[in-house]
Design a protein around this nucleic acid. Structure first.
Lengths: 264, 264
DNA sequence: CGAGGATACTTTACGGCATAAGGAGTTGCC
DNA sequence: GGCAACTCCTTATGCCGTAAAGTATCCTCG
């Protein structure tokens, strides 16, 4: 199942995201708040980072703060809104300034790598539905950053929108694959390569005609190069490589669009 | 939450996906099966298509078949496996033959559009975790199709892998945005455009300094062209356009890779 | 042909979840 | 001093996936 974040009380969620000032502090009776939205978001992040989105429950977050689940509802309207806040908090880790002296391409490459890394640090981010187009300040900030990098290129708005979306989706998608394979391998306790080869063997058993049905796939698979040693396990290396070459291809496309004289 | 499909009993799940023959039919005592894996998958698809992944419960699927939730466990080991099967069934809708006379580019464009459309027909697909790299026959079939389209280009394996992944992720990502915005708009009953403009107004209230903080974003947004009338609502048109231009850029990149003499 | 065992399906139950409702204790202002 | 506002708790409701155990059905073997 997926978290459909912020579907419900969108108004309230937005206020929280944009930190609408809390009610005036003066003339406030009752016990002082022992918690804060920030603290709750931090706790949520800790839970999700450590145990995954599946373990993120109001109970778990409350427990980490020494409270019950219901205590959180004083600060946050519901779980969906909490997830929204966590998502934006995670994106706040992204740098916003990139060196443009060498042109847009290296800057954009680094940006993509940074986003990729951020998604891998917080894999649960990839399970947050992308519903509404971009709402939180950090998310918008990231968009703005990309636009700044591409600003000198003179790309027309239509293309610009397409490029930004494509980049974003590409990184998210690649990160999801990377995160998920890593999770699958580590959940079963089997190291990367074994896990994959076990799966291959099984496939061969179940579909003996595999090579006939999928000749090109078979050829491609057999031609898989050993990944660079630096890149962790086998699968992880594979995904990183796909990320790199995919990104390069994508940026080649951008370059074509940029240099094409007719702007289309 | 996200469905981590097939994490559990991977072996059993794979057998089902690849339709390992049922136990020999002779010498079988007991009442005849009133259901079948296929029927269950069909029912699951119907539930998910109609009411979304959130409404997909074993109880709901059972009910649609006139059974209890537990009856399904005779045929399917658990919900995760059912979701895997549904996912592969949905992908089976994709064509596998594409006209290559005009070259790989139009074929690949059509393929991407077909996948995009399939994802929009079954938005819940996008909430199925991409964990393990591709396991079901239809999913592999789709990969094989892409490879067939790109076969004439002489792309080296490393690039080929990157391109295929990139395409796949791109389409999935764009479809997710499209599906989610559509869902958000229709869930609130507000038509596309209104929904979006309400959100804009709210943003302006919450962040009065918006235009200062995000100048490029503001400029880009204000320059948004009215989408073509054919494209349904405002947002939907916007997403379709991003999809088209993004795809074009991406394929430009592929073209560069294909025509570059040094093969890198 | 009748018994035994395999099979399909049901009922019930458990532990989890988000969260609604209402109660208890704490604090500041009048 | 009292009251209103506030935080936080306990309890309860209605979902969920699925384990366990019961019942009815049918085939095969003696």
């Amino acid at each position: 199942m997926v978290v459909f974040a912020g579907q419900g009380d969108a108004r309230r969620s937005m206020s929280l995201l944009w930190r609408a000032p809390d009610r005036p502090r003066t003339g406030r009776s009752g016990p002082k708040p022992g918690l804060s939205v920030d603290a709750i978001v931090t706790a949520g992040l800790a839970v999700a980072d450590a145990e995954g989105m599946g373990a993120l429950s109001m109970r778990a977050v409350g427990e980490r703060l020494g409270r019950t689940a219901m205590a959180l509802y004083t600060y946050v309207p519901g779980k969906a809104e909490l997830v929204d806040l966590m998502h934006d908090r995670a994106l706040a880790e992204l740098p916003t300034d990139y060196e443009l002296a060498a042109g847009w391409r290296p800057a954009l490459t680094t940006w993509a790598e940074d986003l990729f890394a951020c998604c891998l640090r917080h894999p649960w981010m990839l399970q947050v539905s992308q519903a509404r187009p971009v709402l939180g300040p950090s998310e918008l900030g990231a968009m703005e950053t990309v636009l700044r990098i591409l600003h000198g290129t003179g790309l027309e708005p239509r293309l610009l929108r397409g490029v930004v979306s494509t980049l974003w989706q590409f990184v998210r998608g690649m990160a999801q694959v990377a995160a998920d394979t890593r999770a699958a391998a580590s959940a079963t306790g089997v190291p990367d390569e074994e896990w994959w080869s076990a799966r291959s063997t099984q496939l061969a058993e179940l579909a003996p005609d595999f090579a006939d049905r999928f000749p090109l796939l078979t050829a491609l698979e057999s031609g898989a190069a050993a990944p660079a040693a630096e890149d962790g396990g086998y699968l992880e290396g594979q995904t990183r490589e796909s990320f790199r070459t995919g990104l390069a291809v994508l940026l080649d496309g951008v370059e074509t669009a940029v240099t094409r004289p007719d702007g289309r």
